[in-house]
Design a protein around this nucleic acid. Structure first.
Length: 425
RNA sequence: GGAGAUGUACUCAAGUGGUCGAAGAGGUCGCACUCGAAAUGCGAUAGGUCCUCAGGGGCGCGUGGGUUCGACUCCCACCAUCUCCGCCA
C-alpha cells in the first residue's frame, strides 16, 4: 500500500513513477475518494465532539438538580445524526481503502525500463551453460527412466501439475531442502522457522497477494473458516510480525523457512506442462528479512548473494537478472531473478526472485520499528527471496548432471544428505 | 466434540452506566540525594492512529455489532488463551 499522505502531497510525482508499470489501475479516483472521506470525517468528528462535551455536563446538571429531559431529547437527535454520518463515513473509508489496495508499489528509480521479461538486464553469471558430448535428455524423461519422478500416478491421484517423487527422487528433494536450510542457518545466519501452510485472508492481504490475485490462490473451507494455502512462505513469515512495533536493535530480522507452496497457475494453461517447472504444489525454501529503510538495499544484495551461494555450492550454472518495470510485479520496488541453466529449455529458467518491497508490505501489514522508546514508530522494509526453489533445483540437477548412460551424478555437497549416495542410476 | 473460566496499557492488576485518556503495584526513563551504586524521594510513561493552517478534535479497555443522551461497565456474535473430560497423528 502506498503512503496516502505522499499521494496527497505529491500526486503528480507518484503518478509519473507509476506510469511505466505494466499494471492496470486508475489513479485518478484518489482525489475524489480522499476528499470525500476527509469531508465526512470532519463532519462526523465535530458532531462527536459536541456529543462528548454535552455528555460530560449531564452528570453535573443532574447533581445540581436541573431537569435534563430537554437536553436528552436534543442529544437523541444528535445521536441519530452521528449514526447516519458514521454509516456514510465507513462506506467512504472502505471505498478508499479498497481502492488503495489495488495500487502497485512505486518502483525504485534504478529499475530498468522495459515491457516484458525480455527487457530484464543481466547482471552477472556463474559458470557457463552446460555442454554435453551426447544428446542430453529433459528431466522429465530422465526422471521417468530412473523411476524417480512419476507425474502419471500423481495425475490419477490428484490431477495435472502434481508429481510423485519416488525412491532416490524423494530423497533428493528432501536432501535439497535440508541442504538449503542448513546453509542459510549455519553459514548465512538466518533463523529457521517452520510456518503454517494455511493462512488467513488478512495475511494474504498483508503481503499483497490479495485482493488482486485471488484467482491464483487455493482457498480452503473447513470448520466454518476460510484459509488460503500458502503460495510461498513469504506470506506466513512476513505476517509473523503483523501489527507489531519491533525494537530497532533487533533489525535486521532474517528468517529462512521451508514450505510446500500451492499455486493455482490460473492463466498458465499450456505453459511448462511437462516436468517439474510449473506445479500446483512445489517445495521452496524462502528467505525473509525485516530491515531499517536505510539498510534495505544493501540487505537485498546480501540476500541475493545468499541465494546464489547455494547454487554455487551445488555447481549449477546460473545468471542474475535485474527485473525491468514491465516485469516487476505488483508489490516489489526492486527485484532480481536468479535463473538456472536448464538444458531442456536451452535457456536460463527462474529459480529465485529476490525483492525489496520497501514499505509496501509493512504498511499493509502494519509492521513498524523504533530505535528508541521515544522515537516515532517507522515502517520497516520487508524483503524476500527464494533460497531457492527446490523442485526446479531437482530438475536442474537431473539435467545438468546427467551422464550419457542416463545416470545422475549427485553434487558433492548433497552426498551426506543422500546417505552417502553419489549417483542415481 | 463436551463442560467451565479468562481477555484492561510494557507487565501484573482494580474498576458493573456518566468528570475513566482507566486506581494501585512492578518495570522503564528522567531528576534529586551519592565519590559511585543500592535504598529513598519527586516526576514522566497506552508502542498507537486519524483529521486539522492553528487552538484543538476524533478513535484506541480482545474483535465486530447492538442497547443508551452517554458503554471498560449491559446484550449478541466472533476470536484467542487456560483448565477438565472425550477422541486422535
Amino acid at each position: 500500500m502506498l503512503d496516502m499522505k505522499l499521494l496527497r502531497s505529491n500526486f503528480d510525482q507518484v503518478a509519473q513513477a507509476l506510469s511505466t508499470r505494466n499494471e492496470e489501475f486508475d489513479l485518478s479516483r484518489f482525489k475524489d475518494l480522499d476528499e470525500k472521506r476527509r469531508t465526512l470525517l470532519g463532519q462526523a468528528e465535530s458532531l462527536k465532539a459536541k456529543q462528548n462535551a454535552v455528555s460530560r455536563q449531564i452528570p453535573q446538571m443532574k447533581k445540581e438538580g436541573k431537569d435534563v429531559a430537554p437536553v436528552l431529547a436534543e442529544m437523541k437527535a444528535l445521536s441519530d445524526q452521528i449514526k447516519e454520518m458514521n454509516g456514510q463515513l465507513d462506506a467512504a473509508e472502505k471505498e478508499l481503502n479498497d481502492w488503495m489496495l489495488t495500487i502497485p508499489n512505486i518502483p525504485h528509480p534504478s529499475v530498468p525500463e522495459g515491457n516484458s521479461d525480455e527487457d530484464n538486464v543481466e547482471i552477472r553469471r556463474f559458470g557457463e551453460p552446460t555442454s554435453f558430448s551426447f544428446e542430453p535428455k529433459a528431466h522429465w524423461d530422465l526422471g521417468a527412466d530412473l523411476g524417480i519422478v512419476d507425474p502419471e500416478t500423481a495425475a490419477k491421484v490428484s490431477g495435472s501439475r502434481f508429481t510423485f517423487y519416488k525412491g532416490a527422487g524423494a530423497r533428493l528433494e528432501r536432501a535439497i531442502v535440508n541442504f538449503y536450510l542448513d546453509t542459510h542457518t549455519e553459514k548465512h545466519g538466518y533463523t529457521e522457522v517452520f510456518p503454517p501452510f494455511m493462512v488467513s485472508r488478512d495475511s494474504m492481504t498483508g503481503t499483497g497477494q490479495l485482493p488482486k490475485f485471488e484467482e491464483d490462490a487455493y482457498k480452503v473451507q473447513g470448520d466454518g473458516k476460510e484459509y488460503f494455502l500458502v503460495p510461498t512462505a513469504e506470506v506466513p513469515v512476513t505476517n509473523m510480525y503483523r501489527e507489531q512495533i519491533l525494537d530497532g536493535s533487533q533489525l535486521p530480522i532474517c528468517h529462512c523457512a521451508y514450505t510446500a507452496c500451492f499455486r493455482a497457475e490460473a492463466g498458465s494453461a499450456g505453459r511448462d506442462t511437462r516436468g517439474l517447472i510449473r506445479q500446483h504444489q512445489f517445495n521452496k525454501v524462502e528467505l525473509v528479512k525485516f530491515t531499517k529503510p536505510e539498510d534495505s538495499y544493501e540487505e537485498l544484495e546480501k540476500l541475493t548473494r545468499d541465494a546464489e551461494d547455494v547454487l554455487q555450492l551445488l555447481g549449477l550454472p546460473y545468471r542474475v537478472v535485474k527485473i525491468c518495470m514491465g516485469d516487476l510485479g505488483f508489490t516489489a520496488a526492486m527485484k532480481y531473478d536468479i535463473e538456472v541453466w536448464m538444458p531442456s529449455y536451452g535457456r536460463y529458467v527462474e529459480i529465485s526472485s529476490c525483492s525489496n518491497f520497501e514499505e509496501f508490505q509493512a504498511r499493509r501489514a502494519n509492521i513498524k520499528y523504533k530505535d528508541d522508546k521515544k522515537d516515532k514508530a517507522k515502517y520497516v522494509h520487508t524483503l524476500n527471496g527464494s533460497g531457492v526453489a527446490v523442485g526446479r533445483t531437482t530438475a536442474a540437477i537431473l539435467e545438468n548432471f546427467q551422464r550419457e548412460d542416463g545416470s545422475i551424478a549427485i553434487p558433492e555437497v548433497l552426498v551426506p544428505y543422500m546417505g552417502g549416495m553419489t549417483e542415481i542410476r
